[in-house]
Design a binder for these strands. Structure first.
Length: 692
DNA sequence: ACGGCTTATACG
DNA sequence: TCGTATAAG
């Protein structure tokens, strides 16, 4: 549900940039002969020509619509060119579009705070840039105004044809006696026109944009004149724009809330909404949504541009409609393996390119129960700490699935071939990774090394992180994981790992030291083909132990131990052991927050990872001789940390941590700013608060 | 039984 | 915190 935010500054300059039929443009850039032709991007060509997910404007004028099937599109527009979405691992692969989107973001991020709103949309806060421009080189001082800027649509301005309107636009932009807000928007027009030209030049993609005083209005405007045009909403035009606007056109009101407004309150346009008092709206929709509604009716929206260039989560999913629904555990496992592979590949790139690690793995599925009964019950989602490594993710995802399945089935058994006719069917699966945190900059030597050669020029004024674009390829050193005793035989032993070798800091243009070792990438696909499930996988979740102990015997020796005081518990589900990423987060937090956390939850880090994942518990003897400084800075007692928490980290990071915890093998601790090639030399940087 | 597939956000 | 619901493109 939407929520109201106080308006921070009434004269912000906000732009929303929206790529025109983006996937089509990506394909047309790849195949220039398609340019100018009616084109659509389609996925899964087998059933009725596949479903359209992007349609060029030429095709739209033939009456082709998104949400047509390929065959309908052919009927409507016989000469339409249908391009298929790439497929990998048996599912649609959107990576080419994602990286094309990143190209755009890295250009748009140069002029101000930038928020990646989706794969093909960004918001920009251009307030600072516009203010500087107004101070240093206001439009009226310019000898000529950009042609692209002159093509802008300015709401509220009459737009007679001819070249007259460009004169009107020029006058509007340069008007000396204009409101300050209008002047700022005038600067915004010029800046955005420039940015759009730059995007076109550097990526060959066209886009449209809206320029206004807040995100809501900018978004509204960007869609008003497409493709390849920009639209401005001066303050004075807001009321007229909104008064007749159908309520469902507003962002957030396209769904049930909008419908409720219409049917329950008789509101059809944003103008109608003005009649309702704030308290009235709050009575119907709650305090937050009520206030939000009251505000947007007046064009007020304080939502800030987030300054985030990268996604906050990664997911990989697939649906199995109707007859294709999955009906065996082994088939589910097969698909989870495919999805997990893709997810891991993307996590690896994220680590390489952006130095981020994800800490939570979540499984979603949708299901029904054959032969009716409760057919439409929701399949529960489950999550667990994310451990890096393909097979780890595959294994954890499958365990999560089984735990969820047991919960879903409840009274029915989970046995697919029980006597009952009531058995499950899986119609959708997805795995996702979230809670992604930056590895603090300047921490590990390897990261520092990369920063030396791959950061992009930063012209950013605000504290918004820049995206690291390209990273050089690398030298390999293979590494196979030591598997836990409990690991089942049917799981391949090898993982894709990121391996580490000592970087040579002197040669900044040398090949780097990280490589994705895809040694037995393919192996995992035949590990679980169409066969019967040979083994019922054990599950370590507490909840498993209740019902199906026979079918899913509990692992022995993996009981949860928590010896710390004050765990915020109630549930014996146990969170005794903080994830290693919690420790990162602690260091990303303010010193104060860190302090509190420390007091609140001093816990012992014992073996066992908590929930569903399977890992060995090695109660290694830990080093008690660590320096005070490390103890106090960390917020956790170093001596009590079980080494197995590091299992969830990428290997090169584990290695740094381990050497940090073994001072004897750390000849040159701490201060050595210039890398000496030793992995441990820079680990102390982990423990310095992140500067904003 | 579906348009697929992703991502984000708010709520309890 | 986790899991669910809603929304968007």
């Amino acid at each position: 549900m939407p929520v109201a935010r106080p308006e921070t500054s009434d004269a912000r300059v906000i732009a929303h940039v929206d790529m025109d039929c983006f996937y089509v443009q990506v394909e047309q850039r790849k195949q220039p002969e398609l340019r100018g032709l009616p084109t659509a991007v389609v996925q899964y060509n087998e059933w009725q020509g596949g479903a359209l997910i992007a349609v060029s404007y030429e095709a739209r004028s033939c009456g082709v619509k998104r949400s047509m099937r390929g065959e309908e599109a052919k009927a409507a527009c016989p000469e339409i060119q249908l391009v298929q979405v790439p497929v990998a691992r048996g599912k649609a692969d959107l990576n080419t579009y994602r990286s094309a989107g990143s190209e755009v973001v890295s250009i748009l991020a140069q002029s101000g705070k930038c928020e990646r709103a989706s794969i093909d949309e960004v918001y920009l806060d251009l307030t600072d840039a516009a203010e500087s421009m107004l101070a240093d080189a206001p439009p009226e001082s310019l000898e000529s105004i950009d042609e692209e800027a002159l093509k802008s649509h300015i709401l509220g301005m009459s737009r007679e044809d001819g070249d007259d309107f460009k004169e009107s636009v020029r006058d509007w932009i340069c008007r000396k006696d204009a409101d300050r807000r209008d002047k700022l928007l005038g600067c915004g027009i010029i800046i955005v026109a420039e940015l759009r030209k730059q995007v076109l030049k550097e990526t060959e993609f066209s886009c449209s944009a809206g320029i206004a005083h807040n995100k809501m209005l900018a978004k509204l405007a960007s869609g008003m004149n497409k493709p390849a045009q920009q639209t401005v909403v001066p303050y004075s035009a807001v009321q007229e724009l909104l008064s007749s606007l159908p309520i469902k056109k507003m962002k957030q009101l396209g769904g049930k809330l909008g419908t409720s407004l219409q049917t329950d309150l008789g509101i059809d346009t944003v103008g109608d909404l003005l009649q309702f008092s704030e308290t009235k709206l709050q009575e119907h929709y709650g305090i937050n949504t009520g206030t939000w509604l009251w505000n947007i009716a007046r064009g007020i929206s304080g939502e800030e541009v987030q300054g985030r260039l990268l996604p906050k989560s990664h997911g990989s999913g697939k649906t199995f409609p109707g007859p294709r629904a999955l009906r065996s555990l082994s088939n589910v496992q097969h698909w989870l393996n495919q999805l997990s592979e893709e997810l891991y590949e993307r996590l690896s790139s994220d680590l390489e390119q952006n130095k981020r690690i994800a800490s939570t793995l979540t499984l979603h599925a949708s299901a029904f129960i054959s032969k009716d009964s409760d057919s439409h019950k929701k399949f529960p989602s489950k999550s667990c700490p994310l451990r890096y490594g393909v097979t780890k993710i595959q294994e954890d995802a499958f365990n999560l699935f089984q735990a969820a399945l047991r919960e879903y089935m409840g009274p029915f058994g989970t046995k697919p071939q029980g006597n009952k006719k009531e058995t499950w069917r899986i119609t959708g699966l997805s795995v996702s990774a979230s809670k992604i945190v930056d590895i603090p900059s300047g921490t590990s030597s390897i990261m520092r090394y990369f920063q030396g050669q791959s950061t992009i020029p930063s012209s950013s004024t605000s504290g918004c992180p820049q995206e690291h674009v390209a990273v050089t390829p690398s030298v390999s050193e293979s590494c196979s994981e030591q598997k836990s005793v409990e690991t089942r035989a049917s799981i391949p032993e090898e993982d894709i790992t990121i391996t580490y070798t000592s970087p040579d800091l002197d040669n900044s243009y040398r090949d780097s030291d990280i490589v994705l070792e895809k040694s037995l990438f393919m192996l995992s696909s035949n590990c679980c083909t169409l066969e019967e499930p040979t083994v019922q996988f054990p599950c370590q979740d507490a909840s498993c132990q209740s019902n199906e102990a026979k079918e899913f015997p509990t692992q022995s020796g993996t009981q949860t131990k928590t010896i710390g005081r004050k765990i915020n518990n109630s549930k014996e589900k146990n969170r005794g052991m903080p994830s290693i990423v919690d420790i990162f987060k602690n260091y990303n937090a303010s010193p104060q927050a860190r302090q509190e956390t420390q007091e609140d939850s001093t816990v012992s880090l014992t073996s066992n990872r908590g929930n569903l994942s399977s890992s060995t518990s090695h109660n290694s003897e830990v080093n008690q001789e660590v320096e005070d400084r490390r103890d106090t800075n960390w917020g956790y007692k170093v001596g009590e940390i079980d080494q197995s928490v590091f299992d969830e980290l990428p290997y090169e990071i584990q290695r740094e941590f381990r050497s940090f915890l073994r001072p004897n093998k750390r000849p040159n601790a701490g201060k050595s700013k210039s890398g000496d090639g030793s992995a441990s030399s820079s680990i102390a940087h982990y423990f310095q608060p992140l500067k904003r």
